[in-house]
Design a binder for these strands. Sequence first.
DNA 1: TATAAAAGTAACCAAATAGTTACTTTTTGG
DNA 2: CCAAAAAGTAACTATTTGGTTACTTTTATA
Lengths: 208, 208
Amino acid sequence: MQRRAEVTRNRILEVAEIEFSEKGFYGSRVDEIANKAGVNKALIYKYFGSKEELYETIFSIVYERFSKLERQLISVEGLDFKSRMRRFVELDFLFLKENPTYVRMLMWENLNNAKYYKEKRLGNTKSVILEGLDQLLDDAKKEFDVPEEVTAKQILLTIYGCGFNYFSNSATMMGFLGDDMMDDSILKERIDSVVNMIMAYITGGKSD
Amino acid sequence: MQRRAEVTRNRILEVAEIEFSEKGFYGSRVDEIANKAGVNKALIYKYFGSKEELYETIFSIVYERFSKLERQLISVEGLDFKSRMRRFVELDFLFLKENPTYVRMLMWENLNNAKYYKEKRLGNTKSVILEGLDQLLDDAKKEFDVPEEVTAKQILLTIYGCGFNYFSNSATMMGFLGDDMMDDSILKERIDSVVNMIMAYITGGKSD
DNA sequence: TATAAAAGTAACCAAATAGTTACTTTTTGG
DNA sequence: CCAAAAAGTAACTATTTGGTTACTTTTATA
């Protein structure tokens, strides 16, 4: 592929990512993607074959960014357990804040019963994350008296649940929170709360 | 409106709820809704005016079910604070499990920047919920030494976040959890974990 | 039971949309 | 510098889709 073609291809990808994340597969129009990319529609079919394959390509790219984050999460650094846990939660929230297209594409994907997610066998990093969190918990057990029921799985569900939901449902949450949920200080409060809650859970309240 | 008309109208509503929750506004086809309801398409326009108004009607109906739950949540019963908190979380999880169309419609709605949610000024019950949770917290303060940073807002975000996300993202979570997330014992484990975590947070680990 | 109103339908339309074909322009290597 | 290959386009098609119109059937009641 020539230089010019790569530039054009990337322009299509950029535009299509925004379109698909905003409107989903059904809501997006190939004509509109072509127009916004300043390109003839036929070129999209030449490069990507079909609307569906274009969508798949975009989803893989966007999901890969999250996979990269997960690889960071498994070896999170910090002086003690709490600061490592804080960093873990912070990295997750920060990623979600800075990657709204990921949040939206994962929502579309879940509404579509994770069709492409399953097809491409993504989510295999998850067991790696669980192992990493398990090791983190082992370290916690040296510092604190961790209750038996505390598992990496439950903690991950809590962090991912609180994190993802904060951003995915912000439109319907906005109203009742009143605040600007994307405001840095509000966000910091939320992160602090999640960290402290998890710490209380893990340490049985004897963390300080 | 005659008896027959009401039956027909309800049949359309039932079918449309499934269609819209499964495929969203753009993915749903008026023709298909008409076919599945065993009705001529023109009748849908006679009753509801447009595809958009039909969607709005459905969304209001589905959201009202959640509003009803919230009215239950504010006056949750129980012997002590922990059992009331448990009941609160249980009711939320149970509702989400039994109302998959609500979960999906709220996801569509959030992807649509809460257009109808805002238009219809839904979510006004949220401040009522916050007040209810505040009163629950006041009761907790009689029993336990509750840290200052603990607020109704943060607890609600945690419960709603963990609850909603568990169901909304189950398709992409399934893979890494391995289990059947809808299995009663797995679900009970999750609820227990959320309750215990919140209790540890609120009581500073001195709940038992 | 006659009739008016309500319930319901067949068949159509205009616009939109995914995808294709035959063509022109640009780039590059010998 | 020129021919072949790659990049890119204009204009088309078949189908789908939201929406409408003119019509028939059913129901209730005076």
